[in-house]
């Protein structure tokens, strides 16, 4: 009994002490990167044969090198071929994941925002409703995981139910979608879903994973300005994802999860987004719309939200603010 108690005490102290000696993942990455970098003296010969080598090509070439820890592990027989290849690929993927800075993010998002107005009916002119949308949107953005940037909200003049988010803080909701909404909590859920896309940098993540743009690690406004072809490529790539293909399913599910959380933090009924998704799925208006073609099915989204809804205890006590919503949209 005494021995058990001593072990318990020891483990408790150990458990307390471990977090204070945290390791730096960034440094580990740097070390791994260093260890997998090919010897510098081999580079000039390559430059001679391929003077116009792009960063994408060079990163692909690096993946073929056998230097560093992985190479050593390989030669010592510590890793089989498959593992070694996987490790090299992982390191190169990590190397390409340089974050795009806010200024560049805003330039990409701003250009896409023009495209949203251009493609989806332009701005809907109702200053009072716009003010209301901004108040609800700002409320959820303020409690989001990325509340240190400015968010901008707009209404699109189209009857199709649509909602978009472009990088840098631009959020759009169509008048058609607003007309399908029944209360403020549902509106907050929809806007928070879009805020979550921005807060979690979903479009940028997609861009950075793109094979054709793996060399964007050095992307700056100056580079974009000097190389309009690169900016063209970037915009085409993200436009294709946002307006045609849609984001990865899992990113949509993540935006649902985070969106519900942001709405809940604001104080809204957390089940409202789930309810609205269900309604949207049943609506004929939604069939064939860009919204339905770029998002996973409503059933999948509903089921996933339903699975994790037990986290929100006493959810029914939270307000939906139906009356205030109806006054705002003059219903």
């Amino acid at each position: 009994m005494k021995t058990k108690f001593i072990i318990l005490c020891f483990l408790s102290v150990l458990f307390w002490a471990i977090p204070s000696h945290s390791f730096n993942f960034g440094n580990i990455l740097k070390e791994v990167e260093k260890s997998t970098r090919p010897p510098e003296k081999t580079q000039p010969s390559k430059e001679k044969t391929k003077p116009t080598q792009s960063p994408v090509q060079s990163s692909e070439q690096n993946s073929g090198q056998d230097g560093g820890l992985i190479g050593l592990g390989d030669s010592l027989g510590l890793f089989d071929k498959k593992t070694s290849k996987f490790l090299k690929q992982s390191v190169n993927t990590l190397k390409s994941l340089q974050p795009i800075a806010y200024e560049e993010e805003k330039a990409i998002g701003g250009r896409l925002a023009v495209e949203v107005f251009n493609r989806y009916g332009g701005a809907y002119n109702d200053p009072e409703l716009l003010n209301y949308i901004n108040l609800v949107g700002q409320s959820v953005a303020d409690v989001s995981s990325r509340s240190d940037i400015n968010y901008h909200f707009a209404i699109l003049n189209t009857e199709f139910p649509n909602a978009f988010a472009t990088p840098g803080g631009y959020v759009f909701v169509s008048i058609g979608l607003i007309r399908m909404i029944e209360n403020e909590a549902e509106l907050a859920g929809v806007l928070a879903h879009e805020v979550a896309h921005i807060a979690r940098k979903h479009a940028l993540q997609t861009l950075q994973r793109s094979r054709s743009l793996q060399g964007v690690s050095s992307l700056t406004l100056t580079v974009m300005d000097k190389d309009p072809g690169l900016f063209d490529k970037l915009i085409d790539e993200v436009s294709n994802v946002l307006f045609t293909k849609g984001l990865d399913k899992n990113l949509e599910f993540e935006a649902d999860k985070y969106g519900r959380e942001f709405a809940y933090r604001t104080g809204y009924y957390p089940g409202a987004l789930k309810r609205f998704i269900q309604k949207l799925g049943a609506s004929k208006k939604n069939q064939g719309s860009i919204f339905s073609s770029t998002h996973p099915t409503s059933r999948e989204r509903y089921n996933l939200l339903q699975k994790s809804s037990s986290r929100y205890k006493k959810a029914s006590l939270y307000p939906t603010l139906g009356k205030r919503f109806k006054v705002a949209i003059k219903r």
Partner: peptide, 20 residues
């Protein structure tokens, strides 16, 4: 951003969309 605006004009986006 001027980069975004120039690109939008070059690609024929409407002035109303840029203003919005």
């Amino acid at each position: 951003s001027p980069v975004s605006e120039e690109h939008a004009i070059k690609k024929g986006a409407s002035p109303a969309s840029i203003e919005s």
